[in-house]
C-alpha cells in the first residue's frame, strides 16, 4: 500500500464550554479513553483501536468549535517536502514546536481557503491500542458507552471550495471522492480521501469561514450504530438525525451533539477508495438523497447549525 504522504486524520482539537460535562460525554458516552491532561487544562483522548497517544484534544473556551484538524504524515522527510510544497504554492506555514501538544512532534500549521486551521505532523508517541500487537484479542473488555473504534474524519463549513479543492488535490495529495455540484458548475460540497476511505475530510459551502459541522467516529456495524442511539436516549444526549443512511459515502450514521453544541457522528460502512477511481458527482437538486438517503431532504439543521 502506498499512502506515504499524508496518511490519515491524526487529531482534532475541539473547543468546549465546560470541561467536566465534555469529558463525561467523550469518555463515558462515546467510549474514548483519557490519556493525558496538560498544564493548560487541555484533555487528551484516544479511541481503543488507535495506536498513537491521542486523537481528540478538548480545550475549554468561551465559544465551542474546532481549533484545528491535524493529519499524520509518513515521516519527517515527507513532512518537510509537504511544507516546502505548501510554501511554494503560496501558503503561509507556521511551525508549532514539538511538545506544544504533549507527546506530539512539531506541527506545520496553515490556513486553508475555507478559513480552517490544518496541521501536518510526522511524530506522535506510540502507545499501542488496547489489545496490543502480540497474539491480540479482537477487542478489549471494559469499554464504555458507544465503544467507538477511532476518530475518522471531520466535515467543515466555509467558502472557496474550488480553491480548497486545488490545494487538497494538487498540493496535499488527497483524492476527490465525491462532490455536489450546482447546475452552473459550482461546488456545494467536496469529499476528500488521503487513504483507502471514502472520506478523511469533507467540506460544505458556507458563507462564513471556519465553521465546524462535525467530528466523526467509526463503528463497525449497523447494530453498533443503533446501540449508540440507544445510549443517546439513555443519557438524554441531543440527537440531530438518525440512525439513517448517507447517499454520499454510503455511511450508516447518526448525528448528535456534545454538551457544548459541537456535532458528533458515529457511523459505519463506507466503501473502499482507490486512487484510480473517478469521483462521484451528485447534482444539487439531489442534495436531499445525497445527505440523508431515506428522508430525501435535508433537515433544517444540516446547513444552519454549526459551531
Amino acid at each position: 500500500m502506498s499512502f506515504r504522504g499524508v496518511m490519515r486524520p491524526g487529531h482534532a482539537v475541539i473547543r468546549v464550554l465546560e470541561m467536566e460535562p465534555a469529558v463525561t460525554h467523550y469518555v463515558e458516552r462515546l467510549g474514548l479513553i483519557k490519556t493525558n491532561e496538560d498544564a493548560q487544562g487541555r484533555v487528551y483522548l484516544k479511541a481503543w483501536d488507535e495506536h498513537d497517544a491521542f486523537s481528540i484534544v478538548l480545550r475549554e473556551a468561551d465559544a465551542p468549535g474546532l481549533d484545528v484538524m491535524a493529519f499524520k504524515v509518513h515521516g519527517t522527510a515527507e513532512l518537510d517536502r509537504l511544507e516546502a510544497d505548501l510554501r511554494a504554492y503560496g501558503v503561509n506555514c507556521e511551525r508549532v514546536a514539538a511538545g506544544e501538544l504533549a507527546d506530539c512532534g512539531h506541527r506545520v500549521r496553515f490556513e486553508i481557503p475555507t478559513g480552517h486551521a490544518i496541521e501536518l505532523y510526522a511524530e506522535k508517541k506510540y502507545v499501542g491500542n488496547l489489545v496490543g500487537n502480540h497474539n491480540p484479542n479482537p477487542w478489549p473488555e471494559g469499554l464504555k458507552g458507544m465503544q467507538v473504534y477511532r476518530f475518522d474524519h471531520c466535515l467543515l463549513y466555509g467558502p472557496k471550495l474550488a480553491d480548497n479543492l486545488d490545494l487538497f488535490t494538487n498540493v496535499l495529495g488527497f483524492d476527490l471522492t465525491e462532490r455536489i455540484v450546482t447546475p452552473d458548475g459550482g461546488l456545494l460540497a467536496t469529499f476528500f480521501s488521503c487513504s483507502n476511505k471514502a472520506h478523511d475530510i469533507a467540506f460544505v459551502h458556507h458563507d462564513v469561514p471556519d465553521k465546524f459541522h462535525h467530528a466523526s467516529f467509526m463503528l463497525m456495524t449497523w447494530e453498533e450504530v443503533l446501540r449508540a442511539a440507544d445510549i443517546m436516549s439513555m443519557h438524554d444526549i441531543a440527537i440531530d438525525i438518525g440512525p439513517t443512511r448517507h447517499g454520499i459515502t454510503r455511511g450508516r450514521t447518526i448525528y448528535f451533539f456534545d454538551p457544548s453544541g459541537n456535532r458528533n457522528e458515529v457511523f459505519c460502512g463506507d466503501y473502499t477508495w482507490y486512487p484510480d477511481r473517478e469521483p462521484i458527482t451528485w447534482e444539487a437538486g439531489e442534495i436531499g438523497r445525497a445527505i440523508f438517503y431515506h428522508d430525501r431532504r435535508l433537515n433544517e439543521n444540516f446547513l444552519g447549525v454549526v459551531t
Binding site: D62, P64, G65, F257, N262, R263, N301, G304, V305
Partner: peptide, 29 residues
C-alpha cells in the same frame, strides 16, 4: 431547535420586559 448545547445560536431569543431568569454558559460567538 439546533444543537441544544449553547453553541449554534439558532434558538437565540430576547427576554422582554423586566424578568427573573438565569443562564448557563453560552457561546460568546
Amino acid at each position: 431547535v439546533g444543537c441544544r448545547g449553547g453553541g449554534c445560536g439558532i434558538c437565540r431569543v430576547q427576554v422582554l420586559g423586566a424578568a427573573r431568569y438565569r443562564t448557563l454558559k453560552m457561546s460568546r460567538a
